[in-house]
Amino acid sequence: MVAHFRMSDLGALSYYIGIEVKQGKEALTLDATLYRSIVGGLSYLVHMRLDIVFTVGYVSHFMEDPQEDHWAMVKRLLRYIKGMVDQVIVFPKTNGSGLRLTVFSDADMAGDING
């Protein structure tokens, strides 16, 4: 069985996999806009900072068209991280019973319709 695909001209490429594409006479520039760049950097940080996982996940939903309130949330998150740079999480040893860690998760993000 042979599949046939039809190509169509959709005009100049302006976005590709979430990255803005600017086409000039001498160069093609890929621009990961400031919001995407900051949130992308924060998404790497969540591997070491579990306290920001929810917020980074939430703001990443608005990469295509961030509004003022999304920017405000990202800025607040950056201020929070700056203020918490010297903070650590300590798991103290207990009386020979070992470490007991209990975790709770809300898989549907508390019914968030934007998530």
Rank of each mutant, 00 (worst) to 15 (best):
R100Q: 11
F104Y: 15
L42S: 11
K25R: 08
S8L: 11
S8K: 15
K25E: 05
Y80L: 03
N95R: 03
I17A: 02
T29S: 02
S60G: 01
V103G: 03
S14N: 14
V46L: 01
D51E: 09
F104W: 15
E26G: 10
V46S: 09
F91G: 08
V74Q: 08
K22P: 09
L28Q: 02
I89W: 11
D51T: 05
D51S: 09
S8I: 12
L101G: 01
V90Q: 09
K25M: 02
V46W: 01
S8F: 09
I52P: 05
G24Y: 04
S37A: 04
Q23P: 08
A110F: 03
L77R: 11
T94S: 15
R36F: 01
E20K: 08
I19R: 06
A32F: 05
G41V: 04
P92W: 00
D31H: 10
E20D: 02
F104E: 13
R76Q: 15
I113G: 07
F62A: 13
V88M: 10
N114I: 00
G115L: 12
L78K: 10
I89N: 10
T33E: 03
R100I: 12
M48T: 14
M1Y: 08
L45C: 14
F54L: 09
H70L: 01
G11W: 07
E26N: 13
Y16D: 01
T29V: 09
F62N: 12
L30E: 09
F104A: 15
I38G: 00
E68L: 13
D86M: 10
M7H: 06
G115F: 12
V56P: 04
R6C: 06
T55P: 03
G11K: 13
A72K: 07
V103R: 00
E64M: 12
L45W: 11
G18Y: 07
I52F: 05
D69Y: 02
L78E: 06
S105K: 05
D9M: 00
R76H: 14
E68V: 06
G57F: 00
S8N: 12
K93P: 05
T94G: 14
M73I: 11
S8Y: 09
V56T: 11
D69C: 06
